[in-house]
Design a protein around this nucleic acid. Structure first.
Lengths: 238, 238
DNA sequence: GTGTTCATGTCAATGCCATTGACATCGGTG
DNA sequence: CACCGATGTCAATGGCATTGACATGAACAC
């Protein structure tokens, strides 16, 4: 079909009224990213996504096998964003902090999506890249190859778990959110809310303690002379 | 209503064909607990619960304002179970371990429910009791009153977050679960699965590191002489 | 060119879900 | 005895993901 003689170049091709390949993986994913950013607490549904695309919701199934697959794609893009933000330096502790904060920041900007997503792997390239980066940081810190694998999944799981926790709170309708806050106040006399600010939130409190534990382990593994005070440790770290 | 003269004791009362007060908060909650235990990965729906009760699903709304309220009730019962199991001793580290493991164990026995629940407060008595117990453990360990509040919510949030993470994996249909495991293998060359055995799961790996961090903080706060090696700590601890 | 096939979209169901509103009915209270 | 509130049933409603039947246009074969 090169010259159909019916002036397609002017009408049919240049202004495809509703021609075939309008949608694409890329367009759908981009649109979803935009929607979840503009309405951070609105759950992403195929109906809404379809409307935003001015297409039938089920058209999405021509490009993604399921909503879950779409959501995995989006999650991987979030990892991608986080990795461009996170600064990795010589200081392994600060680098871990940076990566964690970047992931958290990126995901909490889209709480509804993060709550949907965070408990699953994406299987995508950015996730893989992120793990590779973390692996380098840990190896550079001096952990043994064997321990690195365990620390990797522990670190990832902990960060994601915490993010999901906060995200599901943020994604709640405001009345239920109010209930949560009131219970938290009455239990701890403190807000459990995670501001995006790295300081002054529960996440950083947890993560800093974890980092101290990590440093303690490294010290113990590096100079095994130090006074291994009798606490019930289990697992590796040689 | 003591003797209505229509032989109720024999027929009307003893064999209430389909008389009024069949359901109750208690019966509904108990039934739900049984169902979620018998079918750990089947989501609890009002339809299924109603069927199990041989009652109309919407009858549940006469006893709970919403499904969410029911689920909060169940969550609080789980905390109750955990607290009867957890052993609290003089050893504060081991006590924290015990409480965490008990909560995790109880919730992972009902992954679908735990995944539903774990990100929220229950507002119930057992939750309150649990926090009180943890508070005593932390105070007994020697943390300052101010730090105890922060450690409390950090500890709780971390444990719950991790449990939810694992629970949602366990509650997945087996094909999706297989996908998760394959990705995990390819990323870490290891399974991310949390067996209920405290050894050999990601949770214990994380939690032990966290406990080391906690001990480090306590040591630092207790005898402030120790060599505070220049790491970027932030936040309280006196 | 003609006909076939594949990729893309649309449309109409389906089935599951929580929740609501309109009734019925019973037990107790005035 | 008449009313009322608590409990239960029933029939919708609206939101959701997913599927199957169809259309249509583009590329490809011949």
């Amino acid at each position: 079909m090169v010259g159909r003689s019916r002036l397609e170049a002017g009408v049919t091709t240049a202004a495809p009224r509703r021609q075939r390949p309008v949608l694409s993986r890329e367009l759908i994913a981009e649109t979803a990213m935009r929607m979840t950013l503009e309405h951070p607490t609105t759950p992403l549904t195929l109906a809404r996504l379809g409307a935003e695309l001015s297409a039938d919701p089920t058209a999405i199934y021509r490009h993604f096998r399921s909503r879950a697959e779409l959501v995995r794609e989006l999650a991987d893009r979030l990892f991608g964003e986080a990795l461009t933000i996170a600064e990795v330096t010589d200081d392994w502790v600060q680098s871990l902090r940076n990566v964690a904060a970047a992931i958290r920041g990126v995901m909490l900007r889209r709480p509804a999506l993060a709550a949907d997503i965070g408990t699953r792997f994406t299987g995508g390239p950015n996730e893989r890249r992120g793990v590779a980066i973390l692996r380098e940081i840990l190896v550079g810190a001096g952990f043994s190859e064997a321990d690195v694998s365990n620390h990797l999944r522990a670190l990832g799981e902990m960060v994601l778990a915490e993010v999901v926790m906060t995200a599901s709170l943020l994604a709640l309708p405001s009345d239920e959110q109010e209930f949560e806050l009131s219970v938290a106040r009455s239990l701890y006399s403190a807000e459990p809310i995670g501001s995006l600010d790295y300081e002054d939130n529960t996440f950083s409190w947890i993560f800093e303690i974890y980092l101290e534990g990590l440093q303690a382990r490294l010290r113990r593994a590096t100079r095994p002379s130090a006074g291994a005070n009798m606490n019930h440790q289990q697992g590796g770290d040689q």
